[in-house]
Design a protein around this nucleic acid. Structure first.
Lengths: 147, 147
DNA sequence: CCTCTATCGTTGAGCTTGTCAAGCATCTAC
DNA sequence: GTAGATGCTTGACAAGCTCAACGATAGAGG
């Protein structure tokens, strides 16, 4: 008798099933978002940087690096590209002349508004749920994330 | 009187709140996963490629490119690096000598098992929910994703 | 058989993102 | 004032990604 490779995979737990679906949903939204950002000629990191730069609360290079979970040397290049497109300005820090304050230009503010809109827009899978399911989803996830 | 910039932001809908939480959860898991994959000296793309290469169902380069949503020329490099580490083998296609079949080595099968385990593991936020909340989450998301 | 075209994978150029080590300017503490 | 810490930039290098072009092979039609 030929040996049959039997993969003894235990049945997934409820938590694993739930996580798999969350993962799938995030992946679907990611794909849609990528396409929309490409139309704006923005990469994901550039979009995240713009989202973090709220018009009324400018950030400093190092703060942006922390928020993006990457090294300061990386932010230099990201901001370089945003600045060369006229979306962001580097301004001298007020008290400390070493720091650079990042401010959105008018064009940057407009692009940021569009980016935030795209990112906040729930994917069709969620928008299509019943009102009750939407509330249930929000409430359960609120509890999950310490809400 | 000084002009006050009043940002008239409408209150978020329930769907938007739910999506924001899904996004937040995925981001948290992503950070944890990145750290675990770094311990295995794997990038995210390499991990995804390994996950897609099921031991019993080898893929062809173009199939892997489709599954990873990227160009075939990119997959060449990704597979190069996996192959140079002895995790994957390129084998000549059976009928068609143009295609390359990708097969996991024994080492690759072991690493893949660990990768799949890490990716499937629900984040602490979900694992910590009550059994009822976990079921509710799974059921609602199942409906959202055409379940 | 032979050519024409389509397909599969690779290569090379060029970009963005990411890390690290080093450097420059500036600030702070002693 | 001098020494060390801090903020950002630079340069070198690697991975991921796209595109255009290429070699090899396959399949169809004359």
């Amino acid at each position: 008798m030929a040996a049959t490779v039997t993969v003894t995979e235990r049945a997934p737990t409820v938590a694993e099933e739930a996580w798999r679906l969350v993962f799938q949903l995030a992946k679907a939204k990611h794909a849609v978002l990528s396409a929309r950002l490409a139309e704006l000629d923005l990469t994901h990191v550039q979009a995240h940087a713009l989202r973090l730069l709220e018009p009324e609360r400018p950030l400093v290079m190092s703060e942006l690096a922390d928020a993006l979970y990457c090294h300061a040397s990386n932010v230099t290049g990201i901001v370089d590209r945003l600045e060369s497109r006229g979306l962001v300005e580097r301004r001298p820090g007020l008290g400390d002349r070493r720091v650079k304050t990042l401010a959105l230009t008018d064009a940057g503010t407009a692009v940021r508004a569009r980016v935030v809109e795209l990112m906040n827009e729930p994917p069709a899978e969620i928008a299509g749920l019943s009102a009750g399911d939407q509330r249930a989803l929000r409430d359960v996830l609120g509890r999950a994330l310490g809400g």
